[in-house]
Lab assay of single mutants.
Amino acid sequence: IEEVKKIVSEIQSKQLTRITINGNTYQVNSPEELVEYVRKVFS
């Protein structure tokens, strides 16, 4: 979970619009959307 928080804060600070998780690239339009992807991947 700490690793996830680190990734999320990194993305928020860079305002990235794409994230790659487990080889899948997602278009991310908002931090909320990012959190949803993270929940799916780590749930």
Rank of each mutant, 00 (worst) to 15 (best):
E10G: 03
P31T: 08
Y37E: 09
L16E: 03
E33Y: 02
V41E: 09
I1R: 10
F42E: 03
V8P: 02
Q15T: 03
P31K: 02
T25P: 04
N24G: 04
V8Q: 03
R18E: 10
E36P: 00
K5R: 13
V38N: 00
E2I: 14
N22C: 14
Y26T: 04
I11W: 02
E36S: 05
S9E: 13
K6H: 10
Y37Q: 10
I21N: 00
S9T: 11
Y26G: 01
L34C: 06
V35S: 04
R39F: 10
S30M: 04
P31N: 02
T25H: 11
V8G: 01
N24A: 11
F42Q: 03
V4M: 15
E36H: 12
N29H: 08
E32H: 05
E10P: 02
I21C: 11
E36V: 05
S9G: 09
K5P: 04
N24W: 11
K6P: 02
E3G: 07
I1E: 13
V35W: 09
Y37H: 10
N29G: 15
L16D: 01
F42N: 02
E2P: 07
Q12L: 15
V35G: 02
E33F: 04
P31S: 08
K5H: 13
V41P: 00
I1P: 10
N29Y: 10
L16Q: 03
E32Q: 08
S43M: 13
P31V: 13
N24H: 13
E10Y: 11
T20H: 05
E33A: 07
K6Q: 09
R18V: 12
K5I: 13
T20Q: 06
V28D: 12
K6W: 12
N24S: 09
V35Q: 04
V38Q: 00
T25G: 02
Q15C: 11
I19A: 01
N29T: 09
E3K: 11
S30F: 07
I7G: 01
G23W: 08
I19L: 06
T25W: 08
K6I: 08
R18K: 12
S30T: 12
K40M: 11
V8A: 05
S30W: 07
I1Y: 13
K5Y: 12
Q15L: 09
F42H: 04
K14R: 10
N29I: 05
E32P: 02
V41T: 06
N29P: 05
I21A: 00
I1D: 13
E33W: 08
I21R: 01
Q27G: 03
I11M: 02
R39I: 14
T25V: 12
Q27A: 11
Y37L: 15
E36Y: 05
L16K: 05
R39N: 11
Y37T: 13
V4F: 15
E33K: 04
N24I: 15
Y26M: 09
S13W: 07
S13R: 12
S13H: 14
I1C: 15
L34R: 00
R39A: 06
E2D: 12
I21S: 00
S13E: 13
I7P: 01
E32D: 10
S30K: 04
Y37I: 15
V4Q: 07
K5V: 10
E3N: 11
E36G: 03
V8F: 07
T20W: 04
K14W: 08
K14I: 04
L34W: 04
T17V: 08
I11P: 00
K14Q: 09
K40Q: 11
F42L: 12
T25C: 15
T20V: 10
K6Y: 08
R39H: 10
Q27W: 08
K6N: 09
R18N: 07
E32T: 06
Q27N: 08
V38A: 01
T25N: 06
I21Y: 03
S43E: 14
T20P: 00
I19Y: 07
E33C: 12
I19G: 01
S9F: 14
S9H: 13
E2G: 08
V28M: 15
V8C: 09
I11R: 02
Y26H: 09
R18Y: 06
R39M: 14
R18T: 11
Q27E: 13
Y37P: 00
K14S: 08
I21G: 00
P31Q: 01
K14N: 08
G23F: 04
G23C: 09
Y37F: 14
S43V: 08
V38P: 00
L16I: 05
I1V: 10
L34I: 01
V38L: 11
E32K: 05
Y26D: 03
V41D: 03
T25M: 12
I11E: 01
V41G: 03
I19E: 00
N22T: 02
E2R: 07
V4L: 15
N24Y: 13
S30C: 07
R39Q: 11
T25I: 11
N29V: 06
K40C: 15
E10T: 07
Q12E: 09
Q15S: 09
F42G: 02
V4C: 15
I21L: 09
E3D: 11
E2F: 09
N29E: 10
E2A: 09
S43K: 09
E32N: 06
I21E: 00
E2K: 07
I1Q: 12
E32M: 06
S13Q: 12
Q27F: 08
T17Y: 05
E32Y: 09
V4Y: 14
E2S: 09
N29A: 10
V8D: 01
Y26L: 13
R39G: 04
Q27M: 08
E2Q: 08
P31L: 07
V41M: 14
K40H: 10
G23D: 08
E32W: 07
Q12G: 04
N29W: 09
T17G: 02
Q12N: 07
N29S: 12
N24M: 14
V38E: 00
Y26A: 04
I19N: 00
V28P: 00
K14A: 06
K5A: 14
E2M: 11
I21D: 00
V38W: 04
F42M: 11
I7R: 02
E10C: 14
E33S: 02
V41K: 06
E10A: 08
V8L: 14
I19T: 00
E36K: 05
S13V: 09
R39V: 10
L34T: 00
K40T: 08
S13A: 12
E10Q: 08
V41N: 06
T17H: 05
I11S: 01
I1G: 11
G23Q: 03
V41H: 13
G23V: 02
F42I: 07
S30A: 05
K5Q: 14
E3F: 14
E2V: 11
K14V: 04
N24Q: 13
P31H: 05
I7V: 07
E32R: 05
P31A: 06
Q12I: 15
F42V: 05
K5E: 15
E10W: 11
V41L: 15
V28R: 15
Q15F: 06
N22I: 04
T17Q: 03
I19V: 06
S43T: 09
V8H: 01
V38Y: 04
I19W: 04
T20G: 00
K14F: 03
V28Q: 15
V8Y: 05
N22R: 08
K5D: 15
K6L: 09
V38G: 01
L34S: 00
V4A: 09
K5T: 12
K5N: 14
Q15W: 03
N29R: 07
S43N: 11
R18D: 02
Q27T: 10
S43H: 10
E36F: 04
V35P: 02
F42A: 04
I7M: 08
N22K: 07
E10N: 06
Q27C: 14
E3V: 12
E33Q: 05
Q12F: 14
Q12S: 06
K6D: 07
T17F: 09
Q12W: 13
F42C: 15
Y37A: 12
S30Y: 06
K14T: 08
Q12D: 03
Q15G: 13
Y37S: 05
E3I: 14
S9W: 13
P31F: 12
N29L: 15
Q15R: 13
I1M: 12
K6R: 14
Y37W: 13
Q15N: 10
I7H: 04
Q27R: 06
S9R: 13
K6M: 10
I11Q: 01
I11F: 01
L34M: 02
T20L: 05
I1A: 12
L34A: 00
N29F: 10
I11L: 03
V38C: 10
L16C: 14
R18G: 04
S43R: 08
Y26Q: 02
V35K: 04
E36L: 04
S30Q: 03
G23I: 01
Y26V: 13
E33P: 00
S43D: 12
T17A: 04
S43P: 07
K14H: 08
R18S: 11
R18Q: 11
E3R: 13
T20I: 08
I11D: 01
I21M: 03
E3A: 12
I11G: 01
E36N: 06
K40I: 10
Y26P: 00
Y37C: 15
V35R: 01
T25A: 07
N22D: 08
V38F: 06
I7Q: 03
Q15P: 02
V38I: 14
I19D: 00
E33G: 07
